[in-house]
């Protein structure tokens, strides 16, 4: 009985679904005019299946309306486990010879990719409860196993804050970059692919151990300090200023910074080309800027410094002589 009901439910054919989705997409784009509203009414009356599809559409709209927007955006917009790659790994297993099982059990349990576009910033909770923040244009792959919690920084910049209880997690927490590995000995640190062939590390609580990829001794870096390393060596550490983690709050902090360096930093957060004319690159500036609106930051430069912001196109901007 219930089976035959299910069959009649399935009578909503793919074309009807397409049309219902088309109406929803149009109604979301703009208010329907009187003609269109009448057409939609007529469409609904065409068959029971049409009406049934529209009832589902109304239910969907109701569900979405019931969600408070801000909270919904945070919860539903969070970075997700990559379902497909989880399932794919499992599917590979299903056809693997029994001898392959043991190897699988030792391989990283599952992978997840986290990625931000230019100008985006994202907070993620990792499976062990640690927090990961991705800065603009960043990508991280998770390689979790029974023995270690490894984060592979593919590009960009991340801040890692290990979970309060994770000292009891016997597995090491590692960040791997193209140049080597950073082992967490404590709770909060950031890692950045600087784009000039080095990895930058800043520690905000406790310490980390930095290991260049080519080998050699690990280098311990304590809270309050920052350093760069490449595959061969670790460069001298220096105290970082308080602005080092400002990006996690959506801010760019500069203290007596060269305009050229500031613009290069700002360019990370904007799609397209942003350049600084060498003639003004040595001007200095200080301030706290909100990264949410980089156009506003550019306007501020024009208002406070003897420079002109030349917009040849929305995505082609030069800071030059006034």
């Amino acid at each position: 009985m219930s089976r035959s009901a299910a069959v009649s439910d399935a009578a909503v054919s793919p074309p009807i679904l397409d049309e219902a989705a088309g109406w929803l997409a149009l109604a979301r784009q703009r208010a329907l005019d009187a003609d269109e509203a009448a057409q939609l009414e007529a469409w609904r009356r065409r068959s029971a299946a049409h009406e049934q599809a529209w009832q589902a559409a109304l239910e969907l709209q109701r569900m979405l309306r019931d969600v408070p927007p801000g909270l919904g955006a945070e919860v539903l917009g969070r970075h997700r486990l990559d379902r497909r790659s989880v399932l794919k790994s499992l599917a590979i297993l299903a056809v693997a010879a029994p001898a392959g099982y043991a190897a699988w059990l030792q391989a990283p349990g599952w992978h997840a990719d986290y990625r931000t576009a230019t100008g985006e910033r994202e907070d993620v909770t990792l499976p062990d409860g640690s927090r990961l923040t991705l800065n603009t244009a960043s990508a991280v792959r998770l390689a979790w196993s029974d023995k270690e919690r490894r984060l592979v920084l593919v590009e960009g910049e991340i801040l890692v804050a290990t979970a309060a209880g994770s000292k009891s997690d016997p597995r090491a927490l590692l960040v791997e970059t193209a140049h080597g590995t950073i082992r967490a000995l404590g709770t909060r640190f950031s890692v950045r692919e600087t784009g000039d062939g080095r990895t930058g590390v800043s520690v905000f609580a406790d310490a980390v151990a930095v290991q260049p990829g080519a080998g050699g001794p690990a280098h311990r870096l304590e809270a309050g300090n920052t350093l760069a390393f490449d595959r061969l060596r670790v460069f001298p550490a220096a105290a970082h200023d308080t602005g080092a983690s400002a990006w996690t709050r959506g801010q760019l902090v500069s203290r007596n910074q060269r305009l050229g360096d500031f613009v290069a930093e700002l360019a990370r957060y904007r799609p397209g080309v942003l350049r600084c004319d060498p003639a003004v690159a040595d001007l200095r500036l200080s301030g706290v800027f909100q990264l949410e609106d980089t156009d506003r930051i550019l306007d501020l430069l024009g208002e406070t410094l003897p420079v002109r912001v030349e917009r040849r196109a929305p995505f082609w901007v030069t800071v030059t002589v006034r």
Binding site: D9, A25, Q52, L60
Partner: peptide, 13 residues
């Protein structure tokens, strides 16, 4: 958007 609505509707029906 149309794609999203379509897949949601298909899952609801």
């Amino acid at each position: 958007m149309q794609q999203a609505y379509r897949q949601c509707l298909a899952a609801l029906l």
